[in-house]
Computed example of a mutant assay.
Amino acid sequence: MIIVKTREEIELMREAALVVSKTLGMLASEVKPGVTTLQLDKLAEEHIRAQGAVPGFLGLYDFPNSLCMSPNAQVVHGIPNNTPLQEGDIISIDCGSIKNGYYGDHAYTFAVGEVAPEIEKLLKVTKESLYVGIREFRVGKRVGDVGYAIQNYCESEGYGVVRELVGHGLGKTMHEDPEMPNYGRRGRGKKFVEGMTVAIEPMINLGTRRIEQLKDGWTILTADRKASAHFEHDVAIVNGKPELLSTFAYIYDALGIESDEEDEFREKALVL
């Protein structure tokens, strides 16, 4: 069952989402060769709690940490450890928070220093596909419209689109209806209505779309061990159109990047 939200509830969800946005922005300056994902996880937990929230992932389904940290060929759900990041790595950082009784949940894939051109392109296309999908999240459209848009965009560049893992509705629980696949057929699936809130999250592989799971019961990686990228935003339908609840602006501010990619999805300018 889809749980629609009031405007007041959407604003509470925005606060939860921005806890994550600010945490990812803080981490952006810390992602560098030599740092371990466990160190980043500790920083994130402290930063989330300092904002009056609690980590959304810690203990969820018995997950042991505050961040899902998935480098290189790991797609999602990687467990933080003491292995240092290296120059040329990429690392998907997926972060969750609970504030006001609602979840925030989004992700960004960072380059560690300089990365190979083919990896840089994978990151670029995957992030672009996120916004391609978000444009389809509006009243009257359907789940398949979002999935088709993302799939078509990424497969046209020769990339593999993961099928087994999908985006999802978001609210007082981490995973609400509907599931939001990154593949699909136009005009199929549940219809979008005013007040829906979802997490849209393309998981795109440099090679095959096929995946495997490690024996830890969590870590997902590509079957061919080629790189994978993952970007995620929290989005609500407001006045019939998609409105971002999360932002990458804190990341870009930390990294000195100028971007207007989010402007079309905001009713008013974001003040950092």
Rank of each mutant, 00 (worst) to 15 (best):
I204K: 02
Y108D: 07
K5D: 04
A249R: 13
D41M: 08
G144I: 10
D253F: 13
Q51C: 15
V76E: 03
A199P: 09
E30V: 13
G59T: 05
L58Y: 12
I2R: 02
Y252V: 07
V20E: 02
K141P: 06
R188C: 15
S228I: 02
K241D: 03
R185D: 15
I220T: 01
H230I: 05
I91N: 03
G217W: 09
S21W: 11
W218V: 07
V54Y: 09
S156T: 12
M203E: 06
E267R: 13
V162M: 05
G52H: 08
K141G: 09
S70T: 06
E201W: 09
L43N: 08
G88S: 04
I10W: 01
V112F: 07
Y153A: 04
D224I: 00
L43F: 13
P181Q: 09
G34C: 08
E155M: 12
A111E: 09
V271P: 15
H233R: 09
D260R: 14
A116G: 04
S29R: 11
E120C: 07
V238L: 02
S228N: 06
R266T: 13
L206D: 00
G169T: 10
N81D: 12
A149N: 10
M26L: 14
E114R: 11
E46T: 14
L255F: 09
T247L: 03
L270T: 15
N65P: 13
H106F: 13
Y131P: 01
I93R: 09
I2P: 05
Y108N: 09
R188W: 15
G217E: 09
E232K: 08
R188T: 15
T109S: 05
Q86N: 14
V143N: 03
L122T: 00
F192A: 06
H106S: 04
Y102E: 12
G160Q: 06
Q86T: 12
K191I: 15
M1Y: 11
K22G: 10
G59D: 05
V162C: 02
A16E: 12
N182V: 03
L122G: 01
T173R: 14
E9S: 08
E194G: 03
R188V: 15
V162E: 00
L270S: 10
I204V: 11
Q151A: 11
D41Q: 11
D224E: 00
E201D: 10
E120A: 09
H47K: 15
T247Q: 07
Y102C: 04
R186Y: 14
K241R: 13
P117V: 01
G25P: 06
F265V: 04
Q213I: 11
N100T: 14
V146P: 04
